[in-house]
Amino acid sequence: MQKIEQLIKEKARDLLAAGQVTSVIAWQKGEMFYDNAPGYFDNTEELDALVYNAFCAANLSKYLIANTKKDEKTAVFLKPCDTYSLNQLIKDRRVQREQVLVIGIPCAGMVDINKVKAQGLKGIIGITEDGDNLTVETAYGTKQVARAEVLLNKCLACKGSAYAVSDETIGEPMAVKHAPYDRFAVVKELESLSPQERFAFWQEELSKCIRCNACRDICPACSCEQCLFDNPESPLAGKANNNSAEEQLFHIIRAYHVAGRCTDCGECSRVCPQGIRLDLLNRKFIKDINEFYGDYQAGADADTNAPLLSFDVDDVEPGAATKGRE
């Protein structure tokens, strides 16, 4: 992916130098080698900080909401999975398509530094990518780690190397290699529990929440001008802070609000400092939608109506209404 980084920098430099775009959204070096952050670049001098490697998990599509309100053109570098989120935002009219230059970039799967550490490695100084392996440089020498073993959880549910939307692409498509993975496996386990057990599971899981709002702020589907929970006029405002039961409601309501728009990008779980499996709530909805209305991938296109926002006389009626019917 080092080669790709070079190509991205060159592309960004060309676009900015030629004045084709006012700004570029990509990733910039963090304090540590593994905490790269989303970055705005509006002149060529800043581009030295631009980075693209195994630690650029952040989904950049959401930053275009603010940018396309301005009367200017923005270039954005998106991994294949990120393009689904952008497409959904275009569908929801949150991003003006004509103001964005979408450049698709290949991805071999992003790495979870905690999984690397969990392999018993201490004093990690840097990581270089080497085909299917990572070379981890530590204070105690270098070690090889299989990339497939340390991928971020969200990359295990990789949507593939195709771009849902792009104007241009850079580099050859890459494959994310990992062991077979069923993204609904845990959802199925939860479904098999009794309501009491399931409630206990979620009570335990959601009680960890510190309401930092990171999940909401990172979520490309959470794109409201003003979140219901931040609106003092809303009858919900403040409620979610009142007690732990209503705090749990925050996550349930959020899951409902993004149902049908969630592309399963996995950012909510990735950024949760408490390690709450928020993806399970979203995946439960995705699984239900798939079962009731046929397989549906939010953001796969920018035109068709989502199953929860369309109505057909042949729609299934989940639940009691269909019991015992011929």
Partner: peptide, 14 residues
Amino acid sequence: NEQTCSGCLACEKV
């Protein structure tokens, strides 16, 4: 409410 409407038009669809 124009202040909080995000223009996603989910309302129009349903």
